[in-house]
Every structure is written in structure tokens, then in C-alpha cells.
Design a protein around this nucleic acid. Structure first.
Length: 408
DNA sequence: AAGACGGGGTA
DNA sequence: TACCCAGTCTT
């Protein structure tokens, strides 16, 4: 940890000085040179911790991977920390995904894969299937690979050091901090979107928080805020505050336990912070999904190792047909890409699917195969897809085909 | 440093 | 629409 001196006797003025030094983009010593200054000695810091933990004890959400805060500290009681495996799974699911979305996925996942060993023993398709609908499917494959590594290299114990955790696929600085602090009670900070927002407001950070020097500063700040006692509760409390009170847009400062020690609130800037850099608009594209029927079954293929929806299954989909192709183009495409002769494709429906980087118009076609000869892919009845992981637009396409079958 | 990677909640 | 979510990895 880089030494941060100039945070002793914290004041907003100190940050204003620091932040100016950050903004020219140079990695100068933004923390100042005075060694040994400890934020924990600051009255403001102690007050923030106290206010935050008191608030958290009252307002925390009961979540399936969480232990009641502060519990188990009395002599003779157990279970001070949650199951490290549960923390690993939940943190993987929570990456860029809201708590409310994760809850049911988490329950089903640990029900099906109840231990790290069980997860390691599973096959990747099964793990992807359990992840279906959650998005960012690379997370599922990384988690599965991590489980195998943990069983192989760590005797099935989730590592308790940041370095060992960072070497696992899909575990970055945030997740390593979450596991070490929450599951193992170590004084390690976390910075996620919530923490960044809270810190930007507490300290009146007016530079964009998604640039390298400011991110570095946020980790330093978080490292000085996290207490030795109950670091996991503290980290979760900051994130919970960010999710419930110190929300994006207009925060509920009237409900905030630390508003008196928040620079943004005191100066009326809370709703203006944090500042984020603008992201590129999604690209507009069209995908043509072709439901090729042979008897009662349809052809499904698996997507490649990399890229969008990697290793998920789908009805064959043409992603770069120019213009507004007709049935002839679809026939040619099926011949070329699938080695399949089909009869007169018919357009049955369409919908739009939005991801972070693409706005995809899906056009759904159906056609009959002249034979089921095909080296790759599987022929499946639509009622027997339970073992195939399918991304969202594919489930919509399949629903459209089923509806079309009925009205046929 | 900038993009890719999903899907849903919220205003 | 646009933003943002208990981020990580690749280019």
C-alpha cells in the first residue's frame, strides 16, 4: 500500500489541494510526503465509521450470502463471517449486476453447486446454464475455472490472501478485497461503483472518477477509511449506503448518517457528483436468426470461445447480412455457413435487443431443412432445451418460433 | 487508455 | 433515452 500522509486531520481543503494535483494527469505524489499520517486518528474518520456502522446495523438488507452485521462477536457464538465460497459466488454474480437481480440466481446456484468441489466437478455447460439470463457469461466460465484451480492448487480452500485471489480468473482487485475483508476479516479496502460514488461525495472529488489517477486515489482513500475492526461490515456498509441512500442522481442526504461529514452535501454538490466520462452510444446492427426445422426438431449451434455470448447456444444466426436480405440470401447463407439445404425461409417476427455496446434488431426466420445432415450443432425439439445455455434474445426467438408453430 | 462484455432497474 | 449497476480482461 502506498503511503498516504496528507490525509491526517482530514479536511475538505486537503482534498481540494490533492485533486488539483491529480487533474493534470501526472502521477505525482498525490498523497503528499508526510509519512505516518493515519486517517484513523482523524475525528472525522472515526465519526464516519461510527455513523456508518450504526446505520448499517439498522438498515442492512438480509441477503442470502450475508451474515447479520456484528453478529457472533460475543463469546461462544459462531459464524462471524459468511461462507467464503458463498462470498466468492455472490461477488462474481454481483459484478456489474444489481443485488435484486442476483438474489434468486445465487440461491439456485449454491443449491445446485453447494461447495467449491461440486462446482469444480460440474461441466462448463451446466454452469453456464445456471448463469443463463444473468449476462456477462464470461464470469460463469471464470468462476468455474477458478473453482477447479482452488481445488487443484489450494486443497479446496478459498484463498485468504489478496495475491492468491488475484491470480484466479475473474477475480480482480474489488473481488479480492471483498473476499478477504468479508469472509476473512482482513483490513482490505474495496472500491466498486457505490464506494466510488460515496467517496467522491464525501471528499468533493470533482474530477472524473473513472480515470486511472483518480481510481488510484479512491483506493487509497478507501484503504484509510476501512477499520481494523469489522472491515467486512464497514465495506458492506459503504456499499449499502451507496445503494440505498447515497444513490446516483439525487441522493437522500436527509437519511444519511454521515451527511455532516460529507463535503458534497455541505457544499450543495451531492447531486452533481460523481462525474463520469461519457460512453460511446451502442452500435446499431441487425442479426438474422434462422430456425431450421427438420421434423419436430430445430438446429442449435454453439457460439465461439470469444466475443458476445461466447459458448452459449443459439439458433443459427447471421450477423452480417447486408441490407434487407430476402429468402434467397438466407438460403445461400445456410448453404455456406451451415452446409445445409433449406426450403423457402419465411420471416416470422422480430424484436430489438439492447446490450451495452449494441442495439440489435433481431429478425427471426423459419425454414425447413431438406435433410438433417450436419456435422456441427444439435437437433432439438423446442421442449427439450433444458441443458442448453441460451442468452436472452435466443429465448425470445424460441418463444416466437413456438408461437408460430401453434398458429401454424 | 479505451473497449468489450449482458441484462435489467430507474428516472 | 440515458445512466448505472457490489468489475474484469483484452487490446
Amino acid at each position: 500500500m502506498v503511503g498516504v500522509g496528507e490525509v491526517c486531520g482530514w479536511s475538505c481543503l486537503v482534498w481540494e489541494v490533492d485533486s488539483r494535483s491529480v487533474v493534470n494527469g501526472k502521477k505525482k505524489n498525490i498523497s503528499g510526503d508526510r509519512a505516518g499520517g493515519r486517517l484513523e486518528d482523524s475525528g472525522v474518520t472515526r465519526r464516519r465509521r461510527r455513523g456508518l456502522l450504526g446505520w448499517y446495523r439498522k438498515h442492512f438488507r438480509a441477503l442470502p450470502w450475508r451474515v447479520e452485521p456484528g453478529r457472533g462477536r460475543a463469546p461462544g457464538s459462531r459464524k462471524q463471517h459468511p461462507n467464503p465460497y458463498h462470498v466468492l459466488v455472490s461477488e462474481a454474480m454481483l459484478q456489474q449486476t444489481q443485488v435484486a437481480t442476483v438474489i434468486d440466481y445465487f440461491k439456485r446456484f449454491v443449491d445446485e453447486f453447494s461447495t467449491i468441489q461440486a462446482l469444480a466437478d460440474a461441466d462448463e455447460q451446466g454452469v453456464l446454464r445456471a448463469w443463463q439470463g444473468l449476462g456477462y457469461y464470461r464470469r460463469a466460465r471464470n468462476l468455474h475455472a477458478a473453482a477447479r484451480r482452488i481445488v487443484e492448487d489450494h486443497a479446496g480452500q478459498i484463498p485468504d490472501s489478496v495475491d492468491a485471489l488475484l491470480s484466479l480468473p475473474g477475480v480482480g482487485r474489488y473481488t479480492a478485497g471483498a473476499i478477504t475483508s468479508i469472509a476473512y476479516g482482513q483490513r482490505v479496502p474495496v472500491v466498486d461503483g457505490n464506494v466510488a460514488r460515496v467517496l467522491a461525495r464525501w471528499h468533493g472529488i470533482s474530477e472524473a472518477v473513472d480515470t486511472t489517477p483518480v481510481i488510484k486515489k479512491l483506493w487509497q482513500l478507501a484503504g484509510h477509511h476501512v477499520p481494523k475492526s469489522r472491515p467486512g461490515d464497514f465495506n458492506q456498509a459503504v456499499m449499502e449506503l451507496g445503494a440505498l441512500v447515497c444513490r446516483p442522481g439525487v441522493p437522500d442526504c436527509g437519511a444519511c448518517p454521515v451527511a455532516r461529514d460529507c463535503h458534497a452535501h455541505q457544499t450543495g454538490q451531492a447531486s452533481a457528483l460523481p462525474v463520469l466520462t461519457k460512453k460511446a452510444a451502442p452500435k446499431k446492427v441487425t442479426h438474422h436468426t434462422l430456425a431450421v426445422r427438420h421434423g419436430r426438431r430445430y438446429l442449435f449451434v454453439q457460439r465461439p470461445e470469444k466475443g458476445l455470448w461466447s459458448k452459449m447456444w443459439e439458433l443459427p444466426t447471421a450477423e452480417r447480412l447486408a441490407g434487407r436480405p430476402g429468402g434467397d440470401q438466407l438460403c445461400a447463407w445456410a448453404d455456406r455457413q451451415l452446409g445445409l439445404r433449406i426450403d423457402s425461409p419465411r420471416r416470422v417476427s422480430g424484436f430489438t435487443h439492447q446490450t451495452t455496446h449494441r442495439r440489435i434488431d433481431f429478425v427471426i426466420w423459419t425454414a425447413t431443412a431438406k435433410s438433417s445432415m450436419n456435422t456441427k450443432g444439435e437437433w432439438r425439439a423446442l421442449g427439450r432445451l433444458n441443458d442448453l445455455p441460451l442468452a436472452k434474445p435466443q429465448t425470445r426467438a424460441i418463444a416466437a418460433i413456438q408461437a408460430d408453430e401453434i398458429t401454424d
